[in-house]
């Protein structure tokens, strides 16, 4: 067959010319170019936040560039109530993370490792807070607290945060447990490690990356939550609530400073994990 059609083959080949000039240039760089645009789209708002943290606004609103100043960076706590709110948010974030990671890891092991009555039910319940709109979750929690006559404040905010962080922790840690080869634990048992030693020497170190990931996720979820917190905070003011309140009256550039700091911090965490991972995989 190939012998009978060489002429038509070669003619179709000659028709398809190699693209030249700008078309060719664009084609060979299309993917990095699109990638760059996406990155630009994602980072533009962050860039604006960082930029305006160095602004010296003329009025109460920090929306127009006036001139460069490091005033906001050097006088971070000058704005009334902001640093208190920030401190509270960090505290709530840490406590909510610790509690939800501890509980969530236990739940993940139970669901991931054991077959018991109500396992699929438990699985579903864990997913519920992730699927429920935050407004619904916040308002129903408020109804619950009011109904039970619990005073709203830092305590109720903590309860709320632990609740919705829990789902994300369970899902993250469970995925890690599911990817664990059960033969590794069998091998440990075969090599004279009892149940407890097997857990601490083999299972836990292998699940740890999942737990660390879950902690970071839980902290950032708790730290920037506004909707659920707003319903259940009473007179307590967390950082997101402070920013919300400030935006009504005018945003000081110090808010941008905190935003920039958070960005730098999370960037540092990501880079650190990458460095550690690279170093571990090297000889």
């Amino acid at each position: 067959m190939a012998v009978t059609t060489p002429s038509s083959d070669s003619s179709s080949m000659s028709v398809r010319r190699r693209p030249r000039g700008p078309v060719r240039w664009l084609r060979s760089r299309l993917i990095p170019l699109v990638g760059l645009l996406v990155l630009l789209y994602m980072f533009a708002p962050i860039f604006v936040v960082v930029l305006f943290s160095f602004n010296q606004p003329s009025g109460r609103f920090n929306y127009q560039w006036v001139h460069f100043s490091t005033n906001a960076w050097t006088n971070l706590c000058q704005v009334g109530g902001m640093c208190e709110a920030l401190r509270l948010s960090l505290l709530i974030g840490v406590v909510a993370t610790l509690c939800s990671v501890l509980l969530g890891t236990l739940v993940a092991f139970a669901i991931g490792r054991h077959r018991f009555r109500g396992r699929s039910g438990a699985n579903l319940m864990v997913f519920m807070p992730m699927a429920t709109p935050e407004v619904v979750m916040g308002s129903s929690l408020l109804a619950l607290f009011v109904g039970m006559n619990v005073a709203r404040g830092t305590g109720t905010v903590l309860v709320a945060h632990i609740m919705f962080c829990l789902s994300f922790v369970v899902v993250t840690v469970k995925a890690r447990i599911a990817s664990l080869d059960p033969r590794l634990e069998q091998a440990a048992m075969d090599l004279y490690a009892n149940e407890r030693t097997t857990f601490w020497k083999v299972t836990f170190p292998l699940v740890l990356p999942g737990i660390v990931g879950a902690s970071l996720l839980a902290f950032s979820l708790s730290f920037d939550d506004f909707i659920v917190t707003n319903f259940n905070s009473g007179s307590t003011v967390t950082f997101p609530m402070f920013v919300w309140g400030a935006a009504q009256r005018g945003t000081p550039p110090q808010v941008n400073v905190v935003g920039s700091l958070m960005f730098v911090l999370s960037l540092a965490v990501v880079i650190a994990t990458q460095v550690v991972r690279r170093r571990r995989s090297r000889v």
Binding site: R183, A187, D190, L191, V202
Partner: peptide, 10 residues
């Protein structure tokens, strides 16, 4: 002691 099929190295 066992040598596992897929080795099961830690």
């Amino acid at each position: 002691n066992t040598v596992f099929q897929s080795y099961a190295l830690f």
